[in-house]
């Protein structure tokens, strides 16, 4: 595996019962890039990244992350590997019974980073500052708006300094202004933490704002791969259906 390849997915297949969700998908994520995976709902995008972190077990194929075969890792090694991977869930997945501070403390404590309580507090404050919500420290998730929940969730993702961030629909359910803010945050985090990211979305504005490279998934297979320009100029009806009505670019 090339050193610049952070994630390599080879001939991945995953189905649920008789339904095939991912059918022979192969892709690579390179160091420092934002790879956007586009596709309609049900095209297997979320299943793909859940297979990468082994929340789901693939039926066939191989997934290598940072040179390690994810399928062959034991529980301890998987835990170690997951320290290097941040995962932003579609729903935010903040723990309802914990305050924002406890939500951010949770991964830091479990990842055994041997931090003192002062260092932990400093990391939490820094993560919250990065998402612009320093004053939300003692709020409960139920007191936060949709956009704030996404930001806190992003803060929880970056608090443990991951090398890779997997974003599952980061702008779903948000208004256009908040979606733009999240897209800008994704870029800021990429620059500041030098992360490599895979962004699962069907939001074209988010894709335009964040993508270095795009992959279109359709019916569980890779339909098209390339840069933004290739997608914008494609005469393919399926690609056009995504791009033609979305001409407002974010600067």
């Amino acid at each position: 595996m090339n050193e610049s390849q952070i994630i390599e997915v080879k001939n991945l297949k995953k189905g649920f019962g008789l339904q095939k969700v991912i059918n022979n998908v192969s892709l690579k994520l390179f160091k420092g890039e934002n790879l956007v995976v586009l596709g309609k709902s049900g095209s297997g995008k979320s299943v793909l990244i859940k297979c990468i972190v082994r929340l789901l077990t693939p039926d066939e194929g191989e997934i290598n992350v940072l040179g390690e075969n994810m399928g062959s890792l034991n529980r301890d090694a998987l835990g170690e590997m997951r320290k290097k991977i941040g995962f932003l869930f579609q729903s935010g997945a903040l723990y309802d019974s914990m305050t924002v501070k406890e939500n951010l403390e949770f991964p830091l404590r479990r990842m055994k980073m041997n931090l003192t309580s002062k260092e932990t507090d400093r990391k939490i404050e820094e993560a919250l500052e990065n998402v612009g919500l320093s004053d939300a420290l003692y709020k409960m998730p139920s007191q936060l708006s949709g956009g704030m929940r996404k930001r806190i969730s992003l803060a929880r993702t970056i608090v443990a300094d991951p090398l890779i961030i997997l974003y599952d629909e980061p702008t779903t359910g948000l208004d256009p202004a908040t979606s733009d803010e999240i897209s800008v945050l994704i870029n800021d985090i990429q620059k500041k933490y030098k992360t490599s990211s895979m962004i699962i979305t069907h939001d074209i504005e988010c894709a335009r704002a964040t993508a270095n490279r795009l992959i279109m998934l359709h019916e569980g297979e890779i339909y098209m791969e390339g840069d933004l320009e290739k997608f914008e100029k494609s005469p393919d009806p399926l690609i056009e259906s995504f791009f033609k009505n979305n001409n407002n670019k974010i600067n």
Partner: peptide
């Protein structure tokens, strides 16, 4: 059940917990 539905259990899993 609601933690499962809202992916909180998955979030714990990927947090090495």
């Amino acid at each position: 059940g609601s933690m499962k539905v809202t992916e909180q259990i998955d979030a714990m899993e990927v947090s090495s917990a």
